[in-house]
Design a protein around this nucleic acid. Structure first.
Lengths: 211, 211, 211, 211
DNA sequence: CTTTAATCGAGACGGTACGTCCGGTCTTATG
DNA sequence: CATAAGACCGGACGTACCGTCTCGATTAAAG
């Protein structure tokens, strides 16, 4: 996550306050809700957290990285409970992700950080590992489960089969995540049960033959 | 678009320079390419355009609105040439949109402006009218064409049919645009012919029954 | 005074509005009272005068020159009525000048313009001819009158006498004008009858022997 | 003087740089000499002082207050060395003050600040305490010395005597300071030995009877 | 009565300084 | 060492004013 990854080593001096870590991330999310990305300032986050600005910069190199980490933990909520069939599994995860993006701090921060990352390779990598991969994992898991249930054909063996599987996973991910994000942020309408059902129906029918 | 409404009314005083308008928007796009959203400054844009900062602020209230307008015109390029069948039409527009988003000024600006819009209703409306509606129009047009060709069933008459059509259009739009944006900005891979073909295949198969 | 000195020549075209001249100078003085020198703006003066900014700049080259002219005419009020004896004459003119400087537009403008003139030779010359010489004339006149009454000895003939007379006039002027200005602007107390009497007493006694 | 009151209390945080204070005031005076009041800018002062603009505004609220303080210290130079007799003392201080006003930074700044103060009570008070009172002190001191020498009669006891003394001091101050300022800035001639002698002669003769 | 030429109001223009704000670094004294 | 407080540099922000300019519309005098 941030710069003081390891719990402690044999180091000396006053240890870092773990309470401060939590307070800072909480304050960052609160500030995002109140102010949005553009108006959020490091001074304000520090004040909300009851912490000196120095303490922020000792842990995160800059605003972008702090916000990425503050938002990333929200994506840990995403799960894939086994509801028995592929359609239900998809609908469940779509609604979960939709609910997550409905929260103002997620909405603002995610797009802003992605925008910033178009000109910052390090930031892009941080986003990938902190956020994107957590989502993609759900797609992979759901697909495996459906294959075990016999709802989807198993991957063909060999490198060609592996590549086809990777392509299918990639397209599925772009379709699901992209549609949810687009509906929430651009179309600006809610991800509700009906929409989730429509989406999952289209996906299952459309992706069926791809494996 | 921006604040100076019509070319002229019965108004008095020196008219605004239309040349300046163009120079400013060109300069804004150039600055976006060179600097990205975060580093772009109004002073720099003014200098590039050979124009005083005052002239910028007389036309646009702030950075966001300027960038929206500067980027919006790029979306005028998007067209839906009639390639004879639905699949080809979809692939064509997917590749066009993908190529547009591959350009650095579009990429950065679009996401940044969308992010900012989550906390700014006026900006959201500006984006909708300047960008989103231009894209959505293509979906509507392509669907009508496919219906005339008999590739898609016609809309059922009556209010229920109209609502179903609107839902189908909305879902299609979120799926196509969302997938392209997600692949370009998050997955960070190119929208090439093969991917476009896969996407269009999935869409046609999946959306077939929805009308 | 200002740039269109002569009434007209053999020129053609629309003649300048004399009403505008007056309105501008009035507006300038009013603005000085309300805003002081530092906050006075040309746009504001134009608006008060019901006139376009162009019209101001067609007549005066800049703010300084406009203000000098606007204030200068106030000094035309100064007179030296013959009250019968030197002491009364001095007291009369001291009170007049004190009353003039008590008016806020005079107070502010005079000092500001003088300050600006320390780095602007043209402005200094304009002030001298428009303001200072009108005051100095009173000193010369009062001295001649006192000499005719026998209250002061006549000038000695010859160049040495003329020079002595010039020195006496200069010193007298600096003493009277300087004391009044200093009391009004720095000490910030009123020039009343008692103070005028004290001042004139000191001057007559002190300057008696200088001629 | 300026906003940072005492050297230190029990306060926390990084203390203000005293070196910056000095550098800023020096830079202000240098800028006054080079540019004059009207052209002096805060950015330029900051650059000359090798300091950020923020640092200026943390100490002084605006341009006027900075210039007053920068100029005020120059008036600390004024002294009243004991030359043995009243006439010499006066001539000495007149020449000192004349020399001070001959310096371009003093000349411009003093008048500009006085002009601005006519519409700004806080500024007027700052000028009084920082500049005017330092000058007036010399008049009071010189008068006491002359009374001890027997060149001037002692103050009469009682409130009436005190009031008469205060009046005499006020008039003397307005006469001396006013005459010097007027000669320097309006008449625009030098305060040389001859003129100082004339002035002191007139004053002693004229003020002799007032006490 | 037409032409001519300078005026007028209105307001956009290039330039420049303002005073504020923020990001990120640094310097203190206190744990 | 870490921390809280807060000063520091650098630089962009959006505003305001200056003095110039470009319009279309008047307004006298000259032809």
């Amino acid at each position: 996550m941030h710069h003081s990854a390891s719990p402690r080593k044999g180091r000396t001096g006053r240890p870092r306050s773990t309470e401060a870590d939590r307070a800072i991330l909480d304050a960052t999310r609160a500030a995002l809700v109140d102010l949005g990305w553009g108006k959020l300032t490091m001074s304000d986050v520090a004040a909300r957290a009851g912490v000196a600005k120095t303490t922020l910069y000792r842990r995160w190199a800059n605003k972008n990285e702090l916000v990425v980490d503050a938002v990333a933990v929200l994506f840990d909520e995403l799960e894939l409970p086994d509801r028995g069939c592929l359609q239900s599994d998809i609908e469940g995860v779509v609604l979960q992700f939709g609910a997550l993006l409905a929260r103002p701090e997620t909405k603002t921060a995610l797009m802003a950080v992605v925008a910033e990352s178009t000109a910052d390779e390090a930031l892009r990598e941080r986003i990938r590992s902190a956020i994107v991969d957590r989502q993609k994992r759900l797609v992979i898991l759901g697909r495996e489960r459906a294959q075990q249930r016999g709802e989807l054909p198993p991957d063909r063996p060999g490198p060609a089969g592996e590549q086809a599987a990777a392509q299918a996973i990639g397209l599925t991910f772009d379709l699901i995540a992209g549609a949810i994000v687009h509906r929430t942020l651009v179309t600006a309408e809610a991800v509700d049960t009906a929409w989730a059902h429509q989406l999952s129906t289209v996906l299952i029918r459309g992706l069926g033959g791809l494996g």
